[in-house]
């Protein structure tokens, strides 16, 4: 089936099998390997991207469901520079092995949008769908707090 999807500002038209998962479409068809796969059951959030301005788990979306959608992946979050959330993860040592990080960052950017004063409890609840095995979440929460403040009402 032919689908047209805009990713990070570039529009792609491709033939895909209907069963192609969106994450595989991004990684294998478009070569955007920044989005990682960490589980089979929509639990870990490593594959989180933005689809029509919402965070979604791209392992649980079919590419055909995203036909016509506008996607942003970690590669397109900031063009050339660093998004405040990326900078905050770096500043606060919010990552170790880096594998959950793209999904964590994509999830966190949507979590804090319009909520500069987001509380620690809200951040922890809001990151329930992103599993990190390295950091113990402490520095991730700090990073998200920093970025929330810097992103202001955006």
């Amino acid at each position: 089936m032919q689908i047209t999807i805009t990713v990070n500002g570039t529009t792609h038209t491709r033939d895909v099998e209907p069963r192609t998962l969106l994450v595989d479409f991004l990684r294998d068809h478009l070569g955007l390997t920044g989005t990682n796969i960490g589980c089979d059951t929509s639990q870990c959030g490593a594959c989180t991207i933005h689809m029509d301005s919402q965070s979604v788990k791209s392992c649980t979306v079919l590419a055909v469901q995203a036909d016509g959608a506008d996607l942003t992946t970690i590669e397109g979050l900031a063009n050339g520079s660093l998004h405040p959330m990326q900078q905050a993860f770096w500043d606060n040592h919010g990552l170790q092995c880096g594998y959950c990080t793209p999904g964590m960052i994509m999830s966190a950017t949507k979590l804090v949008e319009g909520n500069p004063g987001i509380s620690e409890a809200e951040i922890r609840h809001g990151l329930e769908g992103n599993i990190c095995r390295c950091t113990g979440y402490q520095n991730i929460v700090k990073a998200v707090q920093q970025a929330a403040g810097e992103m202001g009402g955006d």
């Binding site: 920044g34 990682n36 660093l82 990326q86 993860f89 880096g98 594998y99 990080t101």
Partner: peptide
């Protein structure tokens, strides 16, 4: 000191084996 390896990870450029084609 902030980690020198971070820029590649936070921008989705980690060199994991699964990314190799």
């Amino acid at each position: 000191v902030k980690r020198v390896e971070d820029p590649r990870f936070i921008q989705g450029r980690g060199k994991y084996v699964a990314n190799l084609k």
